[in-house]
Design a protein around this nucleic acid. Sequence first.
DNA 1: AAGTCGGGGGC
DNA 2: GCCCCAGACTT
Length: 353
Amino acid sequence: MQKAFTNLLLNWNQSGNLRTMPWKGERDPYRIWLSEVILQQTRVEQGLAYYNRFIEKYHTIRDLAMAPDEDVFKLWEGLGYYSRCRNLLATARFIAFERNGRFPDTFEEILSLKGIGPYTAAAIASFAYGLPHAVLDGNVFRVLSRYFGITTPVDQPEGKKLYTRLANELLDTDSPGTYNQAIMDFGATICKPRQPLCQVCVQRNDCEANKLGIAEQLPVKSKSLVRRTRFFYYYIFSYEGGFYIRQRSDSDIWHSLYEWALVETEEAMKGEKKDLMHAVRNAYGNRLKGNIISVSDQYSQQLTHQKINGCFIHMELDHPLPEQLGFRFITRKQLGNFAFPRFITRYLEKHPL
DNA sequence: AAGTCGGGGGC
DNA sequence: GCCCCAGACTT
């Protein structure tokens, strides 16, 4: 059989695939697109609730396109990779207003949209329009590298080319969407990253990695992760019952999210008020006057490439903050309208203002 | 071609 | 701790 892998995969999909998800079998390109963007580098269990909330609030792409940025970011809050949210809004508005709501229906046009790369374009093209483009996500790389015993690194251009060609050869062109869904379900439930279910796998007799007993060692990645440590000291400025927040805009983590006044240092500061006051006046001007009310415990958060350490300092100001610092003055009640990083919301959950 | 962008879960 | 997750974008 030329494509034994494909046949066994489709058989397994019909009889042994128990995975259900709300967007499975969906044909509305808006819903497919939304689910795929939410699921980029995100586990299905984590993205599911977000998808449901988005669909409930924004039934159509036009509804999403007309929404204020802040509302959409608030709905995305906590999901991470916030450029996805920015691109989601840009693409929604492009399709709704520049294309009169018509979602593009060719692979190349879909691929040209902001926030849509090779994976997402193939997913939308196959699920919504039945176009013959194989998806390549973490599941597919893993399944193919194990089945064929490929040790070419998946995170380099040579590997991408090799896997792309192979995946498209294996694709069932009669029903690309079903095939694409099946191979991802297979990777997620059988050919798992750790402790794959090789004993009950329908491909076990042909799988090279299973024959060699090296399934868990594939796929190969060439890059090793480098992490840096940063120290964030957040000053919760209050004045006459209100608070100052600012939107992040640098090419840095948490772009578009809001935060308190931040002082970042190279080294950890002890919680001494004298040092904290010196640091904040150094950062925001020596005319800044006020009292430090409280200093929180140390908090830390592990991101993929960074470890954030720091704490939260309540500071009652004697005067309003100068306009040019770019802060926004809000009341306690307005706080819930803005999206904050988890580093901040986790603090707020323990210490509501 | 390499670096960067979150947050959570499994082990 | 380390690795991974329905990847994409920037440099």
